[in-house]
Design a protein around this nucleic acid. Sequence first.
DNA 1: GTTTGTAAGTAAGTGTTACTCACCTTATTA
DNA 2: TAATAAGGTGAGTAACACTTACTTACAAAC
Lengths: 182, 182
Amino acid sequence: MKSFSELMQEKDFNSITTAEIARNGSVTEGLIYKYFKDKKDLLYQVLNEHFTAFQARVETRIAMEESSISKLEVIIFTSLESYAENRLLSKMLMLEVRNSLAFFNSCAYGMVRKYAATILEIIQQGIASGELKPETDPYLLRKVILGAIEHACLGEIIFARELDIDHTSSGISEIVFNGARA
Amino acid sequence: MKSFSELMQEKDFNSITTAEIARNGSVTEGLIYKYFKDKKDLLYQVLNEHFTAFQARVETRIAMEESSISKLEVIIFTSLESYAENRLLSKMLMLEVRNSLAFFNSCAYGMVRKYAATILEIIQQGIASGELKPETDPYLLRKVILGAIEHACLGEIIFARELDIDHTSSGISEIVFNGARA
DNA sequence: GTTTGTAAGTAAGTGTTACTCACCTTATTA
DNA sequence: TAATAAGGTGAGTAACACTTACTTACAAAC
């Protein structure tokens, strides 16, 4: 996993060969398959470690917020921050991970679900407390938030443009919570 | 392209072999490479046809709307409709196309840019006419809309769940234009 | 202190698959 | 009619993920 993570800093998933991973890790190719089902399984386990750390960071931060909306704002900000901090990993996540159905059975996807569950709970609390409109579909609001976060980073990640986290996260929050209509 | 489109109805991109495409199209493998740079180029040209048809449909419909917001609502609805109508193609688009940088140099991506440009123009008109808040970042609003559309379909497409177009599109519009805050 | 079971590790494959290339055949045109 | 290009072929090749038969290290159990 260490060897693979190192190589991920240099090149994308399909360009990394199992021979390279083995060589870089000073083991033989065969050994990889003693510990990992296949090359993708190796990737998913690396992602799982990353997601676990991210989830911990998110939970620490939202514990410090009072209102549901400010919790959601913190989630938006922290997500963007994480994308910006781990550009190569994010690129892999957005471009290469989802293209296999195996991902959706992996432990890494389990962490994604946990993250999504956290967001849903906050939204439901917000509706219950009257902060959010009672007619809001919580699942749909979650989708809009997650979609906005991801799409906001997509272009900047792919084309290696810099990402203004503050402007982007406050802009998303403004649109999602207050609406774009004048 | 016809042969490849047929196979796309059955299985995903990586599972379709060039040998199969050739056999199904009653030509030899070598011939494919006379007309297409590689396997992905073939995919991109199929996508390009699809995007061109979609763009035409969108433009016809928005020409019938007066306000910027209703034009954008039409775009949201039409996009969801297109995803729902072409589930396999959409799956490929969301899961398999983006994972290669070559896509971003393809003619298919050119159509995506055109679609994005259409949305941006409408947003800018909306700001100019006072329909949308003057402080709105048009690029960010576009990202939120596009991200919301895509993410709203993602789960339903991947896990083959049915997609309620009316509920989803009106829900997205409500959040994006009026905000979720009570 | 030897046996036994298992985990760690290896080297040499194999099968699949995208892609190439030298060559043939049919149409077009000067 | 000859030249040229376009349409088409089939046998190959290189790369690469993955397998397998085998060896070594090293505990604990008897």
